[in-house]
């Protein structure tokens, strides 16, 4: 197992205003797995993802990645761990407006002071893989939403992270851009054996995963494993959504 989560919980606020975002969750993710985390808004998907990606600390429990309990690491060690092992794709892209596309993409490598030659090689490879060579000298504000998310994906993948975290990566995209991005993520997962943990409330997006864990009110409700057929898997996800609490919580894509 690459990621082992043991009984983690997280509260926000104090006393009367306390919100139990994650109550008691245990989870395991295998190396090279493409895991989806689903649930209605406020279920705790992003909180769980933030804790897995060391952006937040759980109040209780353990998160073990590659046999290291990351909850016990010092902030600085956590940051190093995050930088070396993880990549991130956010719904809001989190690109740096001050930098152009190329600078945004190579940022993780530049931060780890990689050799210039390696930076250029990896950059060209990623741009080629994601088919965005033409965008390299553009500024961020000149890109469409879809292009921004692809650039964010390129940045997340350039240093070949062992684990890729994606928080609602298709949330801001139209269906075409979403499909392109998901195909790329699947490609990376298969080719590079990158472990992907993706939070989404979209059944179509989740259907690209190998396994989907459903969360409700801070607890794991159930999970569905991809039987190898995306149509069937999609239907299973929809059924689970209905079981959890009616389809109105979820966004079932009409374009599927």
């Amino acid at each position: 197992m690459q990621i082992v989560v043991k009984n983690i919980s997280k509260d926000y606020g104090k006393k009367k205003n306390a919100v139990h975002a994650i109550k008691d969750i245990s989870l395991e993710v295998e190396h090279g797995e493409f895991l989806g985390i689903m649930g209605p808004s406020g279920a705790g998907k992003t909180t769980l993802l933030n804790m897995l990606s060391t952006n937040e600390r759980p109040d209780h429990g353990q998160i073990i990645i590659d046999d290291i309990d990351i909850t016990q690491l010092h902030d600085r060690e956590q940051t190093k761990f995050r930088r070396n092992k993880m990549g991130f794709i956010y719904q809001s892209f989190e690109l740096l407006d001050s930098l152009n596309v190329k600078e945004n993409v190579i940022l993780p490598l530049a931060l780890s002071r990689s050799h210039k030659k390696l930076i250029e090689e990896r950059f060209n490879y990623m741009m080629n893989l994601l088919n965005i060579e033409k965008l390299s000298q553009r500024n961020v504000d000149e890109l469409s939403l879809g292009q921004r998310q692809i650039v964010a994906a390129a940045r997340a993948l350039i240093n070949s992270p062992e684990i890729l975290f994606a928080d609602e990566p298709t949330g801001s995209l139209d269906s075409k851009s979403a499909t392109i991005l998901l195909n790329y993520m699947q490609l990376v997962n298969q080719r590079e054996k990158t472990t992907i943990v993706m939070a989404t409330h979209d059944a179509f997006t989740a259907s690209y995963c190998q396994r989907v864990v459903f969360i409700k009110d801070g607890l794991i409700f159930s999970e569905v494993v991809n039987p190898g057929n995306r149509d069937k898997f999609f239907e299973q996800i929809i059924n689970m959504q209905r079981t959890i609490g009616g389809g109105n919580y979820f966004n079932v894509s009409q374009d599927y």
Binding site: N55, D75, T79, K80, R83, F88, E94, L95, D97, R155
Partner: peptide, 19 residues
């Protein structure tokens, strides 16, 4: 706001607080 956001983004993608 966007300037503060950029610093927050750096933190999210693994830049050390000291940096």
């Amino acid at each position: 706001d966007y300037q503060s956001r950029q610093l927050r983004t750096l933190q999210k993608i693994g830049v050390e607080e000291t940096e």
